[in-house]
């Protein structure tokens, strides 16, 4: 096993409120890592810290380190646009751009300077295929993305993230707006994608975490601070024999 991302004593404050508390975790390459915990525990803040999405929020203060392939992503030398190309993100609500299916998938590569039509065609097909959507949209690539169903839109968003050839994909509750069938498709897709990518997923659905992830991290909040990493380990252990009483109480549904 190799580390893809490592955080060392990562703390984060929104103004006075501490949202992450000295989180140290090693996220393994080509594995699915699920972040679980009650609302407000800091899972989303944590995942957003992994590609510096929190930079956009005013009043955020960070200490500690986030290493991507052993390189600190908060170092001055880091190009944030390049970082977000390497570490892509898929959000809770499918958010395709109001343009065609093709243009959604081609959006990232175009931003990164690819203009050649043949090359773009190839990237679009490859990424839409990788997102398990190709069969459903190949005959209507020029139709508006917003005409797709919610589940298809979410897979298009995954295709859009894949088009720039990221190394890590962060997913923030990618299925919570989807119906069970669409959810199953995304979950199957996640299993396919982990062969090529490292995936970190935030989910409120514990069963989903148990189904899709290899490793699971349980976060909690305490009285005056959030983002406390309680336990991190193989998913099979977290869901059958957790070490910490608080994890046990959470996964058995006795609090949270």
């Amino acid at each position: 096993m190799t580390n893809k991302i490592e955080t060392i004593n990562l703390s984060l404050w929104y103004g006075e409120h501490q949202a992450l508390t000295e989180v140290s975790i090693e996220i393994q390459k080509n594995m699915v890592t699920a972040l679980i915990g009650p609302s407000g525990c800091g899972k989303t803040t944590f995942i957003r810290a992994l590609n510096r999405m929190n930079d956009l929020i005013e009043g955020v203060r960070i200490s500690g380190e986030v290493l991507l392939d052993n390189e600190d992503i908060y170092a001055d030398s880091i190009d944030v646009v390049h970082l977000r190309k390497r570490v892509g993100m898929v959000f809770q609500q499918p958010n395709p751009f109001p343009m065609s299916i093709y243009d959604n998938a081609a959006y990232g590569p175009r931003i990164h300077g690819i203009k050649n039509r043949g090359k773009l065609d190839e990237i679009v097909e490859r990424s839409i295929r990788a997102a398990a959507l190709w069969g459903e949209v190949k005959d209507r690539l020029n139709k508006p993305a917003l005409a797709l169903s919610g589940g298809q839109q979410q897979r298009l968003c995954i295709a859009r993230a894949l088009a720039v050839e990221p190394e890590v994909i962060l997913m923030d509750e990618p299925c919570s707006a989807l119906d069970p069938i669409a959810t199953t498709k995304i979950e199957d897709l996640i299993q396919d994608l982990k062969k090529e990518y490292t995936i970190v997923i935030v989910t409120h659905n514990m069963q989903q975490a148990a189904r899709v992830s290899d490793m699971a991290a349980f976060f909690m909040m305490e009285e005056d601070r959030a983002g406390v990493l309680v336990e991190y380990g193989p998913t099979s252990q977290i869901f059958t024999n957790p070490e910490d009483k608080r994890t046990e109480d959470y996964v058995t549904g006795r609090f949270g």
Partner: peptide
């Protein structure tokens, strides 16, 4: 009810 952890055992 999807018992987990100690309950599952």
């Amino acid at each position: 009810q999807q018992p987990m952890a100690g309950d599952l055992r």
